[in-house]
Design a protein around this nucleic acid. Structure first.
Lengths: 223, 223
DNA sequence: GCCGGATTGGGTCAAGTGTCCCAGACGCTT
DNA sequence: AAGCGTCTGGGACACTTGACCCAATCCGGC
Protein backbone atom coordinates (compact mmCIF):
# COMPACT_ATOMS: atom_id res chain seq x y z
CA UNK A 1 0.00 0.00 0.00
CA UNK A 2 1.17 3.50 -0.70
CA UNK A 3 3.15 5.13 2.08
CA UNK A 4 1.76 8.19 3.72
CA UNK A 5 2.46 10.45 6.66
CA UNK A 6 1.31 9.68 10.15
CA UNK A 7 -0.92 12.75 10.23
CA UNK A 8 -2.71 11.76 7.06
CA UNK A 9 -3.15 8.25 8.28
CA UNK A 10 -4.62 9.49 11.56
CA UNK A 11 -7.29 11.37 9.66
CA UNK A 12 -8.11 8.41 7.45
CA UNK A 13 -8.35 6.08 10.43
CA UNK A 14 -10.57 8.52 12.30
CA UNK A 15 -12.89 8.78 9.30
CA UNK A 16 -12.91 5.00 8.88
CA UNK A 17 -13.72 4.59 12.56
CA UNK A 18 -16.75 6.88 12.22
CA UNK A 19 -18.06 4.87 9.28
CA UNK A 20 -17.64 1.54 11.06
CA UNK A 21 -19.29 2.89 14.22
CA UNK A 22 -22.16 4.36 12.25
CA UNK A 23 -22.78 1.23 10.24
CA UNK A 24 -22.09 -1.48 12.80
CA UNK A 25 -21.95 0.09 16.26
CA UNK A 26 -19.09 0.80 18.63
CA UNK A 27 -18.80 -2.83 19.71
CA UNK A 28 -17.96 -3.90 16.19
CA UNK A 29 -15.48 -1.07 15.69
CA UNK A 30 -12.48 -3.27 16.43
CA UNK A 31 -9.00 -2.28 15.34
CA UNK A 32 -9.17 -4.92 12.63
CA UNK A 33 -12.52 -3.67 11.35
CA UNK A 34 -11.27 -0.09 11.27
CA UNK A 35 -8.04 -0.82 9.42
CA UNK A 36 -9.95 -3.00 6.97
CA UNK A 37 -12.30 -0.08 6.31
CA UNK A 38 -9.31 2.23 5.89
CA UNK A 39 -7.42 -0.23 3.74
CA UNK A 40 -4.46 -0.40 6.10
CA UNK A 41 -2.68 -2.85 8.38
CA UNK A 42 -2.61 -3.08 12.17
CA UNK A 43 0.96 -1.87 12.26
CA UNK A 44 -0.06 1.32 10.53
CA UNK A 45 -2.88 1.71 13.02
CA UNK A 46 -0.44 1.46 15.92
CA UNK A 47 2.03 3.66 14.17
CA UNK A 48 -0.66 6.37 14.06
CA UNK A 49 -2.34 5.71 17.41
CA UNK A 50 -1.00 4.23 20.63
CA UNK A 51 -4.28 2.42 21.27
CA UNK A 52 -7.87 1.99 20.24
CA UNK A 53 -8.93 4.21 23.14
CA UNK A 54 -6.65 6.95 21.85
CA UNK A 55 -8.29 6.75 18.43
CA UNK A 56 -11.80 6.90 19.88
CA UNK A 57 -10.87 9.84 22.07
CA UNK A 58 -9.44 11.65 19.08
CA UNK A 59 -12.54 10.93 17.01
CA UNK A 60 -14.65 12.45 19.75
CA UNK A 61 -12.35 15.44 20.05
CA UNK A 62 -12.64 16.01 16.30
CA UNK A 63 -16.43 15.83 16.55
CA UNK A 64 -16.36 18.43 19.30
CA UNK A 65 -14.02 20.64 17.26
CA UNK A 66 -16.48 20.49 14.43
CA UNK A 67 -14.17 18.75 12.00
CA UNK A 68 -16.43 15.72 11.96
CA UNK A 69 -19.57 17.18 13.33
CA UNK A 70 -22.99 16.57 12.09
CA UNK A 71 -25.08 18.79 9.92
CA UNK A 72 -24.74 22.45 10.46
CA UNK A 73 -27.94 24.10 11.28
CA UNK A 74 -28.01 27.04 8.97
CA UNK A 75 -30.43 29.78 8.26
CA UNK A 76 -31.20 31.70 5.13
CA UNK A 77 -31.49 35.37 5.92
CA UNK A 78 -35.01 36.43 5.20
CA UNK A 79 -37.61 38.86 6.34
CA UNK A 80 -39.59 36.23 8.16
CA UNK A 81 -37.99 34.61 11.17
CA UNK A 82 -40.15 31.51 10.96
CA UNK A 83 -39.21 30.81 7.34
CA UNK A 84 -35.59 31.41 8.18
CA UNK A 85 -35.69 28.86 10.97
CA UNK A 86 -37.78 26.49 8.89
CA UNK A 87 -35.32 26.58 5.99
CA UNK A 88 -32.45 25.96 8.34
CA UNK A 89 -34.10 22.99 10.00
CA UNK A 90 -35.00 21.47 6.65
CA UNK A 91 -31.41 21.84 5.51
CA UNK A 92 -30.27 20.20 8.73
CA UNK A 93 -32.70 17.34 8.28
CA UNK A 94 -31.66 16.85 4.65
CA UNK A 95 -28.10 16.43 5.89
CA UNK A 96 -29.19 13.87 8.49
CA UNK A 97 -31.12 11.92 5.89
CA UNK A 98 -28.16 11.99 3.54
CA UNK A 99 -25.97 10.15 6.03
CA UNK A 100 -27.87 8.50 8.89
CA UNK A 101 -24.84 6.35 9.72
CA UNK A 102 -22.99 9.51 10.65
CA UNK A 103 -25.74 10.45 13.08
CA UNK A 104 -25.71 7.00 14.65
CA UNK A 105 -21.94 7.23 15.03
CA UNK A 106 -22.27 10.52 16.89
CA UNK A 107 -24.91 8.97 19.16
CA UNK A 108 -22.72 5.95 19.91
CA UNK A 109 -19.73 8.15 20.68
CA UNK A 110 -21.84 10.33 22.94
CA UNK A 111 -23.02 7.32 24.92
CA UNK A 112 -19.47 6.01 25.07
CA UNK A 113 -18.28 9.34 26.45
CA UNK A 114 -21.08 9.33 29.04
CA UNK A 115 -20.05 6.00 30.56
CA UNK A 116 -16.27 6.16 30.12
CA UNK A 117 -14.33 7.59 33.04
CA UNK A 118 -12.46 10.67 32.01
CA UNK A 119 -14.46 11.30 28.87
CA UNK A 120 -17.64 12.84 30.19
CA UNK A 121 -16.19 16.28 29.51
CA UNK A 122 -16.20 15.44 25.80
CA UNK A 123 -19.93 14.77 25.91
CA UNK A 124 -20.42 18.12 27.61
CA UNK A 125 -18.10 19.82 25.12
CA UNK A 126 -20.01 18.27 22.24
CA UNK A 127 -23.24 19.84 23.45
CA UNK A 128 -21.56 23.11 24.24
CA UNK A 129 -20.42 23.29 20.63
CA UNK A 130 -23.93 22.47 19.43
CA UNK A 131 -25.35 25.19 21.66
CA UNK A 132 -22.72 27.69 20.52
CA UNK A 133 -23.52 27.04 16.89
CA UNK A 134 -27.24 27.43 17.53
CA UNK A 135 -26.62 30.63 19.44
CA UNK A 136 -24.69 32.12 16.54
CA UNK A 137 -27.34 31.16 14.05
CA UNK A 138 -30.18 32.53 16.13
CA UNK A 139 -28.32 35.82 16.55
CA UNK A 140 -27.75 36.04 12.80
CA UNK A 141 -31.33 35.15 12.01
CA UNK A 142 -32.68 37.71 14.45
CA UNK A 143 -30.54 40.43 12.92
CA UNK A 144 -31.63 39.53 9.41
CA UNK A 145 -35.30 39.25 10.30
CA UNK A 146 -35.45 42.31 12.49
CA UNK A 147 -36.46 40.50 15.65
CA UNK A 148 -35.09 39.97 19.12
CA UNK A 149 -35.25 36.85 21.22
CA UNK A 150 -37.36 37.36 24.32
CA UNK A 151 -35.62 34.61 26.27
CA UNK A 152 -31.89 34.48 26.89
CA UNK A 153 -30.18 33.38 23.69
CA UNK A 154 -28.63 30.39 25.47
CA UNK A 155 -32.07 29.08 26.37
CA UNK A 156 -33.39 29.56 22.85
CA UNK A 157 -30.32 27.79 21.47
CA UNK A 158 -30.80 24.89 23.84
CA UNK A 159 -34.44 24.73 22.72
CA UNK A 160 -33.33 24.48 19.08
CA UNK A 161 -30.86 21.68 19.82
CA UNK A 162 -33.50 19.89 21.89
CA UNK A 163 -35.69 19.77 18.83
CA UNK A 164 -33.09 18.78 16.31
CA UNK A 165 -31.94 15.98 18.63
CA UNK A 166 -35.46 14.73 19.13
CA UNK A 167 -36.33 14.94 15.45
CA UNK A 168 -33.21 13.00 14.54
CA UNK A 169 -33.76 10.24 17.07
CA UNK A 170 -37.36 9.64 16.14
CA UNK A 171 -36.50 9.59 12.43
CA UNK A 172 -33.58 7.22 12.88
CA UNK A 173 -35.96 4.89 14.72
CA UNK A 174 -39.01 4.98 12.46
CA UNK A 175 -37.81 6.49 9.23
CA UNK A 176 -41.01 8.51 8.94
CA UNK A 177 -39.78 11.45 6.88
CA UNK A 178 -43.21 13.03 6.40
CA UNK A 179 -43.90 12.96 10.15
CA UNK A 180 -40.46 14.39 10.86
CA UNK A 181 -41.13 17.21 8.45
CA UNK A 182 -44.43 17.99 10.16
CA UNK A 183 -42.54 18.08 13.46
CA UNK A 184 -40.09 20.51 11.88
CA UNK A 185 -43.01 22.77 11.01
CA UNK A 186 -44.21 22.71 14.60
CA UNK A 187 -40.67 23.26 15.85
CA UNK A 188 -40.12 26.25 13.56
CA UNK A 189 -43.33 27.82 14.80
CA UNK A 190 -42.35 27.24 18.41
CA UNK A 191 -38.91 28.74 17.87
CA UNK A 192 -40.23 31.72 15.92
CA UNK A 193 -42.63 32.45 18.75
CA UNK A 194 -39.68 33.12 21.00
CA UNK A 195 -38.98 36.21 18.93
CA UNK A 196 -40.38 39.71 19.21
CA UNK A 197 -40.26 42.19 16.35
CA UNK A 198 -37.82 44.99 16.80
CA UNK A 199 -39.66 48.33 16.99
CA UNK A 200 -39.78 50.01 13.56
CA UNK A 201 -36.78 52.23 12.95
CA UNK A 202 -34.33 52.87 10.11
CA UNK A 203 -32.49 49.71 9.37
CA UNK A 204 -28.73 50.04 9.17
CA UNK A 205 -27.62 48.30 6.02
CA UNK A 206 -24.90 45.75 6.39
CA UNK A 207 -23.69 42.47 4.97
CA UNK A 208 -25.82 39.48 5.82
CA UNK A 209 -24.05 36.98 8.04
CA UNK A 210 -22.60 33.98 6.26
CA UNK A 211 -24.85 31.09 7.16
CA UNK A 212 -25.17 29.04 4.00
CA UNK A 213 -26.21 25.39 4.38
CA UNK A 214 -23.11 24.32 2.49
CA UNK A 215 -20.74 25.54 5.14
CA UNK A 216 -19.41 22.77 7.35
CA UNK A 217 -19.98 24.41 10.68
CA UNK A 218 -20.63 23.15 14.16
CA UNK A 219 -24.06 21.69 14.20
CA UNK A 220 -26.72 22.68 16.63
CA UNK A 221 -28.61 19.47 16.14
CA UNK A 222 -28.52 16.06 17.74
CA UNK A 223 -25.43 14.16 18.72
CA UNK B 1 -27.16 -19.80 45.41
CA UNK B 2 -30.85 -20.19 45.94
CA UNK B 3 -32.68 -22.07 43.22
CA UNK B 4 -35.29 -20.24 41.24
CA UNK B 5 -37.45 -20.74 38.20
CA UNK B 6 -36.20 -20.06 34.72
CA UNK B 7 -38.78 -17.31 34.24
CA UNK B 8 -37.67 -15.51 37.38
CA UNK B 9 -34.07 -15.85 36.39
CA UNK B 10 -34.80 -14.42 32.96
CA UNK B 11 -36.26 -11.30 34.55
CA UNK B 12 -33.35 -10.86 36.93
CA UNK B 13 -30.83 -11.27 34.12
CA UNK B 14 -32.68 -8.79 31.94
CA UNK B 15 -32.71 -6.26 34.77
CA UNK B 16 -29.02 -6.88 35.48
CA UNK B 17 -28.24 -6.42 31.80
CA UNK B 18 -29.96 -3.03 31.78
CA UNK B 19 -27.93 -1.89 34.78
CA UNK B 20 -24.62 -3.01 33.27
CA UNK B 21 -25.45 -1.39 29.95
CA UNK B 22 -26.51 1.84 31.62
CA UNK B 23 -23.42 2.04 33.81
CA UNK B 24 -20.74 0.72 31.49
CA UNK B 25 -22.09 0.61 27.95
CA UNK B 26 -23.17 -2.25 25.71
CA UNK B 27 -19.59 -3.28 24.91
CA UNK B 28 -18.92 -4.02 28.56
CA UNK B 29 -22.18 -5.92 28.99
CA UNK B 30 -20.52 -9.31 28.59
CA UNK B 31 -22.18 -12.48 29.81
CA UNK B 32 -19.72 -12.57 32.71
CA UNK B 33 -20.44 -8.99 33.69
CA UNK B 34 -24.18 -9.57 33.57
CA UNK B 35 -24.18 -12.73 35.66
CA UNK B 36 -21.84 -11.07 38.15
CA UNK B 37 -24.31 -8.21 38.47
CA UNK B 38 -27.17 -10.70 38.88
CA UNK B 39 -25.23 -12.86 41.32
CA UNK B 40 -25.46 -15.95 39.14
CA UNK B 41 -23.22 -18.28 37.16
CA UNK B 42 -22.76 -18.65 33.42
CA UNK B 43 -24.59 -21.94 33.41
CA UNK B 44 -27.66 -20.26 34.86
CA UNK B 45 -27.39 -17.62 32.18
CA UNK B 46 -27.39 -20.25 29.46
CA UNK B 47 -30.10 -22.16 31.16
CA UNK B 48 -32.28 -19.05 30.92
CA UNK B 49 -31.09 -17.75 27.53
CA UNK B 50 -29.66 -19.55 24.54
CA UNK B 51 -27.26 -16.71 23.85
CA UNK B 52 -26.26 -13.18 24.69
CA UNK B 53 -28.06 -11.97 21.56
CA UNK B 54 -31.26 -13.62 22.77
CA UNK B 55 -30.98 -11.80 26.10
CA UNK B 56 -30.40 -8.43 24.44
CA UNK B 57 -33.31 -8.98 22.10
CA UNK B 58 -35.54 -9.85 25.02
CA UNK B 59 -34.40 -6.79 26.95
CA UNK B 60 -35.34 -4.62 24.00
CA UNK B 61 -38.67 -6.39 23.63
CA UNK B 62 -39.41 -5.75 27.31
CA UNK B 63 -38.55 -2.08 26.85
CA UNK B 64 -40.94 -1.88 23.94
CA UNK B 65 -43.65 -3.64 25.92
CA UNK B 66 -43.24 -1.06 28.62
CA UNK B 67 -42.08 -3.46 31.30
CA UNK B 68 -38.71 -1.77 31.43
CA UNK B 69 -39.52 1.47 29.80
CA UNK B 70 -38.41 4.82 30.90
CA UNK B 71 -40.33 7.38 32.82
CA UNK B 72 -43.97 7.62 32.05
CA UNK B 73 -44.97 11.00 30.91
CA UNK B 74 -47.97 11.73 33.02
CA UNK B 75 -50.28 14.60 33.38
CA UNK B 76 -52.21 15.93 36.28
CA UNK B 77 -55.72 16.78 35.18
CA UNK B 78 -56.21 20.48 35.62
CA UNK B 79 -58.03 23.39 34.18
CA UNK B 80 -54.98 24.77 32.45
CA UNK B 81 -53.47 22.70 29.65
CA UNK B 82 -50.05 24.32 29.94
CA UNK B 83 -49.76 23.54 33.67
CA UNK B 84 -50.93 20.02 33.00
CA UNK B 85 -48.25 19.48 30.39
CA UNK B 86 -45.66 21.27 32.51
CA UNK B 87 -46.36 19.08 35.53
CA UNK B 88 -46.11 16.00 33.41
CA UNK B 89 -42.81 16.98 31.86
CA UNK B 90 -41.36 17.84 35.25
CA UNK B 91 -42.44 14.46 36.56
CA UNK B 92 -40.83 12.83 33.53
CA UNK B 93 -37.60 14.76 34.05
CA UNK B 94 -37.54 13.90 37.76
CA UNK B 95 -37.68 10.26 36.78
CA UNK B 96 -34.83 10.70 34.28
CA UNK B 97 -32.70 12.43 36.90
CA UNK B 98 -33.45 9.70 39.42
CA UNK B 99 -31.88 7.06 37.19
CA UNK B 100 -29.74 8.43 34.35
CA UNK B 101 -28.13 5.03 33.85
CA UNK B 102 -31.50 3.70 32.81
CA UNK B 103 -31.80 6.39 30.14
CA UNK B 104 -28.33 5.64 28.84
CA UNK B 105 -29.20 1.94 28.67
CA UNK B 106 -32.25 2.72 26.55
CA UNK B 107 -30.14 4.87 24.25
CA UNK B 108 -27.52 2.14 23.86
CA UNK B 109 -30.15 -0.45 23.11
CA UNK B 110 -31.80 1.83 20.58
CA UNK B 111 -28.51 2.34 18.75
CA UNK B 112 -27.84 -1.39 18.88
CA UNK B 113 -31.26 -2.08 17.35
CA UNK B 114 -30.60 0.48 14.61
CA UNK B 115 -27.43 -1.22 13.40
CA UNK B 116 -28.27 -4.87 14.04
CA UNK B 117 -29.84 -6.75 11.15
CA UNK B 118 -33.26 -7.98 12.07
CA UNK B 119 -33.71 -5.68 15.03
CA UNK B 120 -34.59 -2.37 13.42
CA UNK B 121 -38.27 -3.14 13.94
CA UNK B 122 -37.66 -3.02 17.69
CA UNK B 123 -36.33 0.52 17.41
CA UNK B 124 -39.41 1.47 15.45
CA UNK B 125 -41.67 -0.34 17.93
CA UNK B 126 -39.97 1.47 20.81
CA UNK B 127 -40.86 4.84 19.33
CA UNK B 128 -44.33 3.69 18.40
CA UNK B 129 -44.92 2.85 22.03
CA UNK B 130 -43.55 6.25 23.09
CA UNK B 131 -45.85 7.95 20.60
CA UNK B 132 -48.83 5.88 21.73
CA UNK B 133 -48.26 6.81 25.34
CA UNK B 134 -47.95 10.48 24.46
CA UNK B 135 -51.08 10.29 22.36
CA UNK B 136 -53.06 8.85 25.25
CA UNK B 137 -51.79 11.48 27.65
CA UNK B 138 -52.51 14.34 25.31
CA UNK B 139 -56.03 13.06 24.77
CA UNK B 140 -56.58 12.80 28.53
CA UNK B 141 -55.12 16.20 29.17
CA UNK B 142 -57.23 17.80 26.49
CA UNK B 143 -60.38 16.29 27.92
CA UNK B 144 -59.51 17.43 31.43
CA UNK B 145 -58.54 20.92 30.36
CA UNK B 146 -61.39 21.44 27.95
CA UNK B 147 -59.24 21.91 24.87
CA UNK B 148 -58.75 20.23 21.53
CA UNK B 149 -55.56 19.73 19.64
CA UNK B 150 -55.49 21.68 16.41
CA UNK B 151 -53.03 19.36 14.76
CA UNK B 152 -53.51 15.62 14.37
CA UNK B 153 -52.90 13.97 17.74
CA UNK B 154 -50.14 11.81 16.26
CA UNK B 155 -48.20 14.91 15.26
CA UNK B 156 -48.64 16.53 18.65
CA UNK B 157 -47.52 13.32 20.34
CA UNK B 158 -44.45 13.11 18.14
CA UNK B 159 -43.72 16.73 19.06
CA UNK B 160 -43.88 15.85 22.76
CA UNK B 161 -41.52 12.88 22.37
CA UNK B 162 -39.17 15.03 20.28
CA UNK B 163 -38.85 17.38 23.20
CA UNK B 164 -38.51 14.83 25.94
CA UNK B 165 -35.80 13.05 23.89
CA UNK B 166 -33.92 16.27 23.27
CA UNK B 167 -34.20 17.42 26.87
CA UNK B 168 -32.91 14.07 28.09
CA UNK B 169 -29.94 13.94 25.73
CA UNK B 170 -28.76 17.45 26.50
CA UNK B 171 -29.09 16.86 30.24
CA UNK B 172 -27.24 13.55 30.12
CA UNK B 173 -24.44 15.36 28.30
CA UNK B 174 -24.10 18.52 30.36
CA UNK B 175 -25.99 17.83 33.57
CA UNK B 176 -27.42 21.35 33.53
CA UNK B 177 -30.66 20.80 35.44
CA UNK B 178 -31.64 24.46 35.60
CA UNK B 179 -31.22 24.87 31.85
CA UNK B 180 -33.19 21.68 31.21
CA UNK B 181 -35.99 23.00 33.40
CA UNK B 182 -36.07 26.26 31.45
CA UNK B 183 -36.30 24.20 28.27
CA UNK B 184 -39.22 22.31 29.81
CA UNK B 185 -40.97 25.65 30.36
CA UNK B 186 -40.49 26.56 26.71
CA UNK B 187 -41.57 23.10 25.63
CA UNK B 188 -44.75 23.21 27.73
CA UNK B 189 -45.64 26.55 26.21
CA UNK B 190 -45.03 25.23 22.71
CA UNK B 191 -47.15 22.14 23.35
CA UNK B 192 -49.96 24.10 25.00
CA UNK B 193 -50.07 26.38 22.00
CA UNK B 194 -51.12 23.45 19.87
CA UNK B 195 -54.41 23.44 21.77
CA UNK B 196 -57.58 25.39 21.15
CA UNK B 197 -60.23 25.89 23.83
CA UNK B 198 -63.36 23.91 23.30
CA UNK B 199 -66.34 26.27 22.79
CA UNK B 200 -68.22 26.82 26.06
CA UNK B 201 -70.93 24.24 26.57
CA UNK B 202 -72.18 22.02 29.39
CA UNK B 203 -69.41 19.65 30.38
CA UNK B 204 -70.40 16.00 30.60
CA UNK B 205 -69.05 14.71 33.90
CA UNK B 206 -66.95 11.63 33.77
CA UNK B 207 -64.08 9.96 35.58
CA UNK B 208 -60.72 11.55 35.03
CA UNK B 209 -58.33 9.28 33.16
CA UNK B 210 -55.79 7.49 35.28
CA UNK B 211 -52.50 9.18 34.60
CA UNK B 212 -50.65 9.31 37.89
CA UNK B 213 -46.88 9.71 37.75
CA UNK B 214 -46.44 6.60 39.83
CA UNK B 215 -47.96 4.32 37.25
CA UNK B 216 -45.35 2.39 35.26
CA UNK B 217 -46.65 3.09 31.80
CA UNK B 218 -45.05 3.37 28.41
CA UNK B 219 -43.07 6.49 28.35
CA UNK B 220 -43.54 9.16 25.80
CA UNK B 221 -40.09 10.55 26.33
CA UNK B 222 -36.65 9.78 24.98
CA UNK B 223 -35.27 6.34 24.25
C1' DG C 1 24.83 6.56 -3.92
C1' DC C 2 24.39 6.24 0.92
C1' DC C 3 22.24 6.75 5.27
C1' DG C 4 18.85 7.01 8.54
C1' DG C 5 14.32 8.00 9.91
C1' DA C 6 9.73 6.91 8.62
C1' DT C 7 6.54 3.55 7.44
C1' DT C 8 4.97 -1.10 6.46
C1' DG C 9 3.20 -6.22 6.26
C1' DG C 10 2.77 -10.05 8.65
C1' DG C 11 2.92 -12.45 12.63
C1' DT C 12 2.54 -13.40 17.69
C1' DC C 13 0.76 -13.37 22.40
C1' DA C 14 -1.98 -12.87 26.47
C1' DA C 15 -6.40 -11.87 27.85
C1' DG C 16 -11.15 -11.92 27.32
C1' DT C 17 -15.30 -13.59 25.19
C1' DG C 18 -19.55 -16.50 24.03
C1' DT C 19 -20.88 -20.91 24.11
C1' DC C 20 -20.98 -25.52 25.60
C1' DC C 21 -20.50 -29.46 28.77
C1' DC C 22 -20.96 -32.34 32.84
C1' DA C 23 -21.39 -34.11 37.37
C1' DG C 24 -23.95 -32.98 41.13
C1' DA C 25 -27.66 -31.04 43.97
C1' DC C 26 -32.37 -29.92 44.75
C1' DG C 27 -37.22 -30.49 45.04
C1' DC C 28 -41.42 -32.50 43.72
C1' DT C 29 -44.08 -36.62 42.76
C1' DT C 30 -45.06 -41.33 43.34
C1' DA D 1 -37.11 -43.88 49.75
C1' DA D 2 -36.61 -43.67 44.93
C1' DG D 3 -36.90 -41.54 40.56
C1' DC D 4 -36.85 -37.85 37.55
C1' DG D 5 -36.93 -33.27 35.83
C1' DT D 6 -35.05 -28.91 36.93
C1' DC D 7 -31.35 -26.15 38.10
C1' DT D 8 -26.49 -25.31 39.42
C1' DG D 9 -21.19 -24.44 39.85
C1' DG D 10 -17.19 -24.93 37.73
C1' DG D 11 -14.54 -25.74 33.98
C1' DA D 12 -13.15 -26.04 29.08
C1' DC D 13 -12.77 -24.73 24.26
C1' DA D 14 -12.42 -22.15 20.11
C1' DC D 15 -12.31 -17.76 18.63
C1' DT D 16 -11.55 -12.77 18.74
C1' DT D 17 -9.38 -8.88 20.43
C1' DG D 18 -5.88 -5.14 21.53
C1' DA D 19 -1.32 -4.54 21.74
C1' DC D 20 3.26 -5.49 20.53
C1' DC D 21 7.26 -6.93 17.70
C1' DC D 22 10.50 -7.19 13.87
C1' DA D 23 12.60 -7.51 9.50
C1' DA D 24 12.03 -5.19 5.43
C1' DT D 25 11.10 -1.39 2.47
C1' DC D 26 10.67 3.31 1.17
C1' DC D 27 11.98 7.95 0.60
C1' DG D 28 14.05 12.34 1.55
C1' DG D 29 18.27 14.65 2.71
C1' DC D 30 23.04 15.04 2.16
Amino acid sequence: MVRMSGAERRELLAAAALRVIGNHGLSQATTRAIVAEAGMSLASFHYAYRSRDELLTEVMQRVVDGEMSAASLSLKPGSDIRNSVLDGMHAFFDYVRADPAHERALQELLQHALVTPGLHHLARAQYESYHRAATKLLASAALAAGVTWRDPLADAARFVVTMTDGITLAWLADGDTAAAQRTIELAATAIARLADPVPAEPVLAGPAPDSSPASSQDRSGCA
